[in-house]
C-alpha cells in the first residue's frame, strides 16, 4: 500500500461515499475513517491484491459499525441539505436532484449494491466480495433497489404485483 496508489483510489472512494451517505462532510468523514483504519490494518493487506476492493470493504465495515451504534442526536435526514454535485445543464439538474433524493430513500443495503454496480462498475462477484454477502443477495438487493428507485422516480406508490397471464 503506497501513497500514490491510495491517492489514485481516493477520488473513487469519495465518489462512492458521497453517493452512499449523501452529505459531503459526512462522506469525507467516512473516507477519512476508512484511510485511518486501513493504516492501522496494514498488516492485513496483501501486497499485490486489489487496493480498491480492500479499501471499499473497510469502508463498508465502518459503515456497518456506524449504523449499529446508537445515533447521536442530530437532525433527521430529510431536514438535512443533501449535498449533491450537479451538472451545469438546468433541465438535467432537476432530474438529477430527483435521482439523488430517490437514492436517499432506498434502504442502505440496497443503495450500496445499486451504487457499486452503477458507479463503480463492479461485477456481481466483486460486489459480493466487497460487501461480504452471497451472490444471490447481491442480485436480490440490486433488483429490489433498482425497482424501488424506478418507482420513486416515476412517482408511483409501489404497485400491487400483478402477473400477466397469457
Amino acid at each position: 500500500m503506497d501513497s500514490l496508489a491510495i491517492l489514485a483510489v481516493l477520488p473513487r472512494l469519495r465518489r462512492y461515499a458521497r453517493a452512499l451517505v449523501g452529505n459531503r462532510e459526512a462522506a469525507d468523514d467516512l473516507v477519512q475513517d476508512t484511510l485511518e483504519r486501513a493504516w492501522t490494518r496494514l498488516s492485513q493487506w496483501q501486497a499485490g491484491s486489489d487496493l480498491r476492493a480492500w479499501l471499499f470493504s473497510i469502508m463498508h465495515n465502518l459503515r456497518i459499525d456506524q449504523m449499529r451504534r446508537p445515533a447521536p442526536p442530530m437532525a433527521s435526514f430529510e431536514d438535512e441539505a443533501i449535498d449533491l454535485p450537479v451538472r451545469a445543464t438546468q433541465s438535467d439538474r432537476i432530474e438529477v436532484s430527483d435521482l439523488g433524493a430517490a437514492l436517499a430513500a432506498l434502504p442502505e443495503e440496497q443503495r450500496a449494491v445499486v451504487l457499486l454496480v452503477a458507479i463503480e462498475d463492479m461485477s456481481y462477484a466483486e460486489v459480493a466480495a466487497t460487501l461480504d454477502i452471497p451472490l444471490g443477495t447481491v442480485m436480490s438487493r440490486l433488483a429490489r433497489g433498482r425497482e424501488r428507485l424506478r418507482q420513486i422516480l416515476e412517482n408511483r406508490v409501489p404497485p400491487v404485483q400483478l402477473k400477466i397471464v397469457r
Partner: peptide, 25 residues
C-alpha cells in the same frame, strides 16, 4: 438509471481533494 447515477456522481471525481484526506494518503 445506471447512466444517470454515474453522471450524478462522476463530478466528485474532479473535485479537489480535501487536505485532510490527501494527508492521510
Amino acid at each position: 438509471q445506471k447512466d444517470d447515477l454515474r453522471r450524478l456522481f462522476d463530478p466528485v471525481l474532479d473535485e479537489p481533494l480535501p487536505d485532510r484526506l490527501t494527508a492521510l494518503a
